[in-house]
């Protein structure tokens, strides 16, 4: 099976700002890959270059065995981060228009559009104007417009932002269904837990560069747990823990101590020692989340853990305000 997407040595700058640099990536056919990273990391720029909406300064791109997405536009479904609708157009007409722009045959298109609208509980909206829909409904219509022409490759930029939990679940099911149909999917998100739930493979991007590219299983085995959560039975003295040579950091989160241990200390030993030191109500070895891994990778590049976490959270917070 060939690659759906191959990027090599991509670089793109906007004036003095380098948005993406040294980007190499291969996405196999049928893969589900998540692009993660904080806001402004270069995810959208990379996606726009894959889509040939903007062009790289240097580097080469191959999409669906063609040198440019321009030549395979009709086989790609794209949901950009900045997405809109023709507000005055009727929902059905809009979906038909978009599908036809993507080369879908007009035969039976209306019925197909109607069926899809039925699936996402929007059958009644066929003749409504797009502007009459709520934001969540509009988002479902936008998603449908990306898949209406049965593309081989789906590129979705922040597909779940601003959805309520019910619609989020519906969209996720549709999304996974596309994956089971064998379609290659790339989606970007700054919400790492979504990527964790959905993806086979994770590509982490920070400051325009790829900092991680592995399957979820590989990531889990590479980054063994290094954080122990402790709920002390009584009021605990955290300073006592700080003094220990094998403890890297201690954070108190509402009475639960997050103890980071040094790489050379096996977690098993650490747990035994903690239990020996103080009476505990609960002790647990926490698997690293993608966020933790991201923080760990990025930390080495001069950013403090706190800064990285804040930049991630600010993205999430911004989105919550938006939704």
């Amino acid at each position: 099976m060939g690659d759906a997407i191959t990027l090599s040595g991509l670089r793109k700058s906007f004036g003095p700002k380098i948005a993406v640099e040294g980007m190499d990536l291969r996405v196999g056919k049928g893969e589900l890959v998540g692009f993660i990273g904080p806001n402004g990391a270069g995810k959208t720029t990379t996606i726009r270059m894959i889509m040939s909406i903007i062009f790289p300064d240097t580097g080469t791109i191959s999409v669906l065995d063609r040198p440019s997405a321009v030549e395979s536009k009709d086989r790609i479904g794209y949901l950009p981060e900045e997405r809109g609708l023709y507000r005055k157009m009727k929902v059905g007409a809009f979906l038909c228009h978009m599908a036809q722009l993507k080369g879908a045959s007009p035969d039976g298109l209306k019925q197909k559009v109607y069926k899809w609208l039925e699936r996402v509980d929007l059958a009644k909206c066929y003749k409504l104007k797009c502007e009459e829909l709520s934001k969540g409904m509009q988002q479902k219509v936008q998603f449908l417009s990306a898949i209406m022409h049965d593309p081989d490759l789906l590129i979705l930029d922040e597909p779940f932002s601003g959805l309520d939990p019910v619609n989020m679940r519906m969209m996720r099911d549709l999304f996974l269904e596309q994956h089971t149909l064998g379609r290659t999917i790339i989606f970007s998100t700054h919400q790492m837990h979504q990527a964790e739930q959905l993806c086979d493979r994770i590509v982490m991007i920070n400051k325009g560069q790829k900092v991680l590219d592995s399957t979820l299983a590989e990531i889990r085995s590479d980054y063994d747990p290094r954080t122990i959560l402790v709920e002390p039975l009584d009021e605990a003295d955290a300073s006592q823990l700080h003094a220990l040579p094998w403890v890297r950091e201690v954070a108190d989160r509402d009475g639960i101590l997050e103890i980071g241990i040094h790489d050379d200390t096996p977690p098993r030993d650490a747990i035994q020692r903690i239990v020996a030191m103080m009476p505990v109500a609960k002790i647990e070895l926490r698997r690293p989340t993608l966020e933790d891994i991201f923080v760990e990778i990025v930390q080495g590049e001069g950013q403090s853990a706190q800064e990285v976490r804040e930049s991630l959270r600010s993205g999430i917070a911004a989105e919550e305000v938006e939704s």
Binding site: R48, M51, I53, V70, K73, D74, I76, Y78, L79, P80, E82, R83, G84, L85, Y86, R87, M98, L101, K102, Q142, S145, A146
Partner: peptide, 17 residues
């Protein structure tokens, strides 16, 4: 201007040049 300001343009550009 409308296409640009309501952000439909990027979707359209994924279908046409």
């Amino acid at each position: 201007i409308e296409e640009k300001s309501n952000r439909i343009v990027e979707v359209i550009l994924s279908a046409v040049s």
